[in-house]
């Protein structure tokens, strides 16, 4: 079984056993699971020590902040809008976000990979996410 499949399986089984970890008040189950799966996937890629720290943090607070997506009907068109918003970013912002999110790298690693200062990478990730959000809000995919 691939690592990706293991992560998905683990996330679903965790929800099965600990349904109270999901708080509907904080947003959709979908975005909750997406965030969980991403966090788990990133853990797999990183050192044991970082996984342990995450688990300790999760044990301290059941709900991490910020799953505030409105409950929405999700559709294939969402993926199209997201791809479009991503490809519309300035190249350096898009690269930084791709390496961090899809590559599972820390911003420090992204800085090394792109041979750019860490501060620059941090700002590009943040600015790129804001830009994407505003585009996705225009197309009605993200909240205003």
């Amino acid at each position: 079984m691939s690592a990706a499949e293991e992560v998905i399986q683990e996330v679903f089984i965790r929800l099965w056993h600990r349904p109270e970890k999901f708080d509907p008040e904080r947003g959709s189950l979908r975005s909750f699971l997406l965030a969980q799966a991403h966090g788990r996937a990133v853990d797999l890629l990183r050192a044991e020590s970082s996984r342990r720290r995450r688990e300790e943090r999760e044990a301290r607070s059941t709900a991490t902040s910020g799953y505030d997506l409105e409950h929405e009907v999700w559709d294939l068109t969402v993926a199209d809008h997201v791809k479009e918003a991503l490809s519309g970013l300035p190249d350096e912002e898009r690269r930084a976000i791709e390496l961090a999110y899809f590559g599972g790298h820390t911003y420090r690693e992204v800085a090394v990979l792109l041979d750019q200062p860490e501060g620059t990478v941090k700002s590009r990730i943040r600015a790129g996410l804001k830009r994407m959000r505003s585009k996705l809000a225009d197309s009605g995919v993200a909240g205003p």
């Binding site: 975005s31 997406l34 965030a35 799966a37 991403h38 505030d68 997506l69 969402v78 997201v82």
Partner: peptide, 12 residues
């Protein structure tokens, strides 16, 4: 929360 929303969308 806003960034997470975009991140969740990236998951699509």
């Amino acid at each position: 929360a806003q960034h997470r929303e975009v991140a969740a969308l990236l998951g699509n």
